[in-house]
């Protein structure tokens, strides 16, 4: 297969995102012999540093430097990619909030196929790429095939592909001039940092985390009582914040906080990748869920299949007894 493979690399604070090396690993699963080109946009010193960092994983690095790319605006970057990508190429993106913004539209403009949120790649056979995806927050998986005759844009789930130690020593090529004069009808204005709440869950050693299985705002109390007995803080999944039952600063996950506790109790949380993406440092995870097949049990150390509304008060009482 002589198809050209590309990976668009995101970066922050002069460092390539972890996904850069995961995309390189994913590309290997499409074509073990491919020489993969990374595309990096940005400005000045920052960009130069990032390009240098990733030459270990890519055969070529296309560097695009310009004022317009100081902040990654997916609409601008799409126009640029459409201009510089060869026909029928395969482009890998991380399935994060940037990749979600860019991927689907890019595939339309390139007239290429699109597969979203891929967790594994089985390989290519006569222009058909076979991948694995998940549906319903990971409750079921599917094999998905994709006709790549006219190329493809593939969004790769962060954390799904294991980066390999490589020292390819790729060449950096400055493509900035090709990106001049590109405009978009959407303009980046500014970043508004997340609000700081009453409790900083990123510093908590023990978290009692509640999900939609808590069912009712009043029941948050049950989790708070357990947390008090354990000396823990209460955190939660996204739907609890959406319902305004707890503050945004208590949300664990990719669009919330990244926590590093020693012990994490997940009460009525299904275990979506966006939630699990916010739990780092391999804590001891205990899951209470009434659905024995909930994906959270795949990552938990200890599971309790029960209604949390029944079980948690029993646990709290036992801990209080113990403490006297």
């Amino acid at each position: 297969m002589s198809r050209q493979l590309f990976a668009y690399i995101t970066h922050k604070n002069s460092a390539a995102d972890d996904s850069a090396f995961e995309l390189a690993a994913a590309a290997k699963k499409i074509d073990a012999n491919a020489s993969v080109t990374a595309i990096v946009t940005g400005k000045g010193e920052d960009l130069t540093k990032v390009c240098g960092q990733i030459t270990s994983a890519f055969a070529k690095v296309w560097k695009i430097d310009g004022d317009a790319f100081a902040y990654p605006n997916a609409e601008l970057i799409r126009a640029m990619l459409v201009k510089i990508l060869p026909e029928k190429s395969i482009t890998l993106l991380a399935h994060d909030t940037f990749g979600m913004d860019l991927g689907p539209g890019l595939s339309v403009k390139l007239n290429a196929s699109f597969i979203s949120d891929v967790v594994d790649i089985e390989g290519v056979k006569s222009d058909i790429l076979k991948t694995i995806r998940q549906e319903y927050s990971g409750q079921v998986s599917t094999h998905v095939s994709c006709d790549i005759t006219d190329g493809a844009v593939i969004n790769i789930r962060p954390g799904s592909f294991k980066p390999e130690e490589t020292s390819i020593g790729g060449e950096i090529e400055d493509k900035s001039s090709e990106a001049e004069g590109i405009t978009a009808k959407r303009k980046y204005i500014e970043i508004i940092e997340a609000e700081i709440g009453d409790v900083d869950i990123t510093k908590s050693e023990i978290l009692v985390s509640v999900g939609r299985g808590i069912e009712d705002e009043e029941n948050i109390e049950i989790a708070q009582e357990l947390a008090d007995a354990m000396g823990a803080d209460v955190s939660c999944s996204r739907p609890i914040v959406d319902a305004k039952w707890l503050e945004k600063s208590r949300q664990v996950g990719t669009s919330g906080q990244t926590v590093k506790p020693k012990v994490y109790l997940a009460l009525g949380i299904s275990g979506s990748f966006q939630h699990l993406g916010g739990i780092k440092g391999s804590p001891f995870i205990v899951a209470v869920n009434k659905n024995a097949k909930a994906p959270i049990f795949q990552v938990a150390d200890i599971g309790i299949v029960d209604d949390l509304l029944d079980f948690v008060p029993v646990l709290t009482e036992k801990i209080e007894e113990l403490k006297g």
């Binding site: 979600m100 991927g103 539209g105 339309v108 995806r133 959407r186």
Partner: peptide, 21 residues
């Protein structure tokens, strides 16, 4: 099915600007 794709595709097909999330 967790694709998050229709909005972006539709915008590109209609040639309209798009913002996700």
């Amino acid at each position: 099915d967790g694709a998050g794709q229709i909005g972006g595709m539709l915008a590109a097909m209609l040639d309209l600007p798009y913002a996700s999330l």
